[in-house]
Structure formats: C-alpha cells, structure tokens
C-alpha cells in the first residue's frame, strides 16, 4: 500500500495545563472514509482542530501528502488541500447561500467555480432552491449541507467533518450520511469524520478509531468495531 494521505504520529496537544491529547497515532489513506468516535471530552474535536493548526500540537508530527504540516497556521493548512466543515457548522448567517459557497472557493482558481457550483447543487438540490437566501434562515439540516458544500468548493483532497449529525433529526442525519457516502464513492473523496453518533458513523466508514482519555483505545475496520463487545457496550447501546 502506498503512503497514507495524512499521517498523525504521537500527537500531543493541550489547553494550558490540561492535556487533551496524549500521543495519538492516526493514518488516513486516499479514498477512505475514516471515522473517529469517542465519548464527550475524549479529545475528538481537539484532534481534528489540531490537524487544522489550532490548538498547536505540543509534540508529535502531522504529515499531509508527505509534507510536514505541524505548526502551520490554520489558513495555510487549508490552502494545501484540506477542507473542513467545522463543529457547529459555522456558516456565515447574514450572507446568502451563494455567497457562502463563493467564500468556500476563495483559495481555488475562479475558473473552476461554475463547475464546482454545479456539482454542489447536484449533490444538494435543496441549496440550489435556496441560493439567494441568507444562511441564517436555513434549517439546521440545510445549514449542514451548506457547510459541507462550502468545504468542497475548495476542491480538497481531504475533507474533515466535525459532528455533522449534531442537533439534526434522524432522517436528516441519514440524508447527510448518504451524501457523504456518495461524495466518497463517486468522487473518490477521502473523508475523516468525527462523530458522536457512533452507530451511523461506523456504518458509513471503512475504518475507525476509538478515542478515550486523549489516546487511541482501539482501531480497526468498521465491521470489526461494530462487532466488538466493548465498543457495543460503551458507544452503541441505545445509540441508534
């Protein structure tokens, strides 16, 4: 197998004196959906944010396409071909859907815009209907769609999704996950998914990491983890 697209080795990160990550190793290969599950406070979001440069890792190394990106500023990392749909979606509420998408494309050649916009609207026909509407007036599900579409406008090689199911109705969650599956299958997009909804995430992903107390507790293919007693007991009971 060729070298992984993104490789995290022995990553430590801290908020002041509180250590949130204590030596995490993660590999993401091209074309995979990899998910990171874990309880509240396990360090899931911290890991994702550290990959994006903030908080800065105190130790360890992150390489993307063979290039060391540890310690780069967030906006520099995002220009290398990593895009994220941040936790809480963070769309621009007073800007229209179209303007939000345009903002997603700031780092790419404007010549691609029409083509990328077409693709985004094919994935999310809902956004096409709402293109002139302000982001803040969209429903939660539509906002999540917009956040993902906006991230994809930068033509990334790796898409980071932080809790896309947060606060959404089960039927919407299913729709969103279906789109993520399509993005991966049809466009070959590599996806790294941080999710509390472990059942859905494991159903979707090829491989998974379980994070607890700032360390990787377990890893393997999704099927293995879905069948694992410990995982079932800790994360899946009543989870779906």
């Amino acid at each position: 197998m060729s070298a992984p697209l993104l490789k995290i080795e022995g990553l430590h990160a801290a908020y002041g004196a509180i250590e949130a990550l204590r030596g995490v190793d993660v590999e993401i290969n091209e074309g995979e959906i990899v998910t990171l599950i874990g309880a509240n406070g396990a360090g899931k979001s911290t890991l994702l944010m550290s990959m994006c440069g903030k908080p800065r890792p105190t130790a360890g190394r992150i390489t993307f396409e063979g290039r060391d990106i540890t310690g780069l500023a967030t906006h520099q990392i995002m220009r290398l071909g990593i895009a994220q749909s941040p936790e809480g979606r963070r769309i621009f509420p007073r800007m229209t859907v179209m303007e939000n998408l345009k903002m997603g494309a700031v780092v790419t050649d404007p010549a691609f815009f029409d083509e990328d916009l077409d693709r985004a609207f094919r994935m999310f026909p809902r956004l096409k209907e709402r293109q002139g509407q302000r982001g803040g007036t969209l429903s939660g599900g539509e906002q999540q769609m917009l956040a993902i579409a906006r991230a994809l406008m930068s033509r990334p090689r790796l898409l980071l999704l932080d809790e896309p199911s947060l606060g959404l109705a089960p039927i919407i969650v299913r729709q969103i996950f279906q789109v993520i599956r399509e993005i991966n299958a049809e466009q070959g997009m590599t996806v790294f998914l941080v999710e509390q909804n472990a059942f859905h995430a494991l159903k979707l992903a090829h491989r998974a990491y379980v994070l607890a107390g700032g360390r990787v507790q377990m890893s393997g293919t999704s099927a293995e983890l879905l069948g694992n007693e410990e995982v079932r007991a800790a994360y899946l009971e009543g989870g779906h």
Partner: peptide, 24 residues
C-alpha cells in the same frame, strides 16, 4: 470582489474564515 466578501465573512465568523483558508 473576493477581498470585500472576505471582510464581511470575517465579521460574520472569523473561525470559519480560517477554516476556509483566509488569512485573517
């Protein structure tokens, strides 16, 4: 223009702007 739109985006949400590759 992109820079003007980036100003407004920055007013709306600085963290999201960083996440999109804008140098705040």
């Amino acid at each position: 223009l992109p820079v003007g739109r980036a100003w407004e985006a920055l007013r709306e949400d600085e963290i999201a702007c960083r996440a999109l590759g804008i140098n705040p």
